[in-house]
Amino acid sequence: MASTVTFRLAKPRATAPADAADLEPAWIRRVLVSVTLGFLVLFLFLPLAAVFVEALRKGVSVYLATFLQSDTLAAIRLTLLTAAIAVPLNVVFGVAAAWAIAKFEFPGKSVLTTLIDLPFAVSPVVSGLIYVLLFGAQGWFGPWLSEHHVKIIFAVPGIVLATIFVTFPFVARELIPLMQAQGSDEEQAAIMLGASGWQTFRRVTLPNVKWGLLYGVILCNARAMGEFGAVSVVSGHVRGMTNTVPLQVEILYNEYNFVGAFATASLLALLALATLGIKSFIEWRTQRDTAAA
């Protein structure tokens, strides 16, 4: 049986790969589609649905009451604050790095390109530990910082720093290939026509990469709001002070407050759905723009 299937799969592909769908027996198509769908339902849709089912288990009023607790509200505020600092900074860093890498030749360029990927390669827990080693009480700058009454670790600055580190690559990674493909001819043309550096950036470079930039920003934002590992190490889990939304979910869950945990988690799930929605919209717009070009 198995050998027959292999044979029937292999032969049509070798002769007419474009029309493989027409040549595959119908039952193979049905099996493939149902396996894929089954997998998606089991591993993606069910957990997502479970979050909302558990969150709403005791009714809408209990669900909403979770968000009135001061600790949860504080966690939401801290998450928004962290994203509001980390995302704009990473947009500036990302655009600057992408600009430098895509448009100029300089020594150490390949090193810089590799360094940008570092946060992706390093485990988030290690990223958090780096900051503890640098700024913690026993860390390199610890004594100096405590002398000057600056608190970074187990405080908001540490959370922001760790988040910036972890989300750094998103914008730069999105822009570098885009800017490299576009080259610098249009910028040179703008300069020849008398535009200043800033005018060239605002009127030529930025509009050309706007969809890629937006794409990078929403991915960066999703990660900034959802980051757990790195933030967990530097946060210290001070209730109402240094807990972000993901950390708050863990605390509530560990206290057997399942409705509270899932209700808070549903915020992150909604963020994920919104991110996916915006992402699809941007992909659709980009495709439309390239189709016109």
């Binding site: 001819d185 249009e186 040179q188 043309a189 703008a190 300069i191 020849m192 008398g194 535009a195 200043s196 009127r203 030529v204 509009p207 050309n208 070009a293």
Partner: peptide
């Protein structure tokens, strides 16, 4: 460059694609 007042036509034109 911007004070030279040179009109330059690039080989592949380099038109601003989004304008």
């Amino acid at each position: 460059i911007r004070d030279r007042q040179v009109g330059f036509v690039f080989q592949h034109y380099a038109l601003f694609r989004h304008m």
